[in-house]
Amino acid sequence: MAGIELLSDQGFRVDGRKANELRRIQCRLGVFTQADGSAYIEQGNTKILAAVYGPHEIRGSRSKALHDKVLVNCQYSMATFSTGERKRRPRGDRKSKEMTMHLQQTFDAAILTSLYPRSQIDIFVEVLQSDGGNYCASVNAATLALIDAGIPLKDYVCACSASFVNDKPIMDISYLEESSGGAELIVATLPKSEQIVFLEMNSRLHEDNLSHVLDMAVKGCKDIHDVLDQAVREHVGEVAAISGLE
């Protein structure tokens, strides 16, 4: 018998989760002091660090400045030790460039950009360890870092992936599930208003199943939102306590 059973008859996935369960999320805000805002997130074995600078004046060529809104500048990179086989270069390959662009689009839609015309916000994302869902974890980490930096957002931006196995949608897929060749749907939403700011689909999926998978991914975003929100509140509480003591 070849292959792995991605979803058993009893409803367990290879790693012991059920179809509608997220991987464990652990996150911390304010991990650096140099940056204006920073955050670290673990979603399962995917580990990501995000740092935010700004808003500040446009760096480099002035011509890039936008007169009516802030320039969101992203940089996505993967540590050379983040995957099973060592990567050759941390950024600049086609995949990283694409990911950078996707992040830029996502946060362009979520940041209240019109508040800071002719300025710039930098978002740096570094993947320390990769085990599926890199984009989603990057978005979630960047959201926390933006909040830590105090940059006004319409809402949290939460991203989650979903796939379709044995005629059932599954949430938050790991690297193993990603590489099994099934469809992969990635969604970033503003959970409160349920607006979708980014949607990407890999491989083929019949249109009849799309809504089930999409619902699953959106549900995942909401679950992630709850976890992130909790972390933010705890962090704010801690910061308030510390500053209160001083």
């Binding site: 074995n45 086989e85 790991s174």
Partner: peptide
């Protein structure tokens, strides 16, 4: 959360880390 290590052969030897939720 429980992480275990597994080695598999795929041309070269890779270290594979998979999560295992209990």
């Amino acid at each position: 959360n429980k992480v275990f290590l597994k080695k598999t052969k795929k041309g070269s030897i890779l270290k594979i880390v998979r999560e295992h939720y209990l």
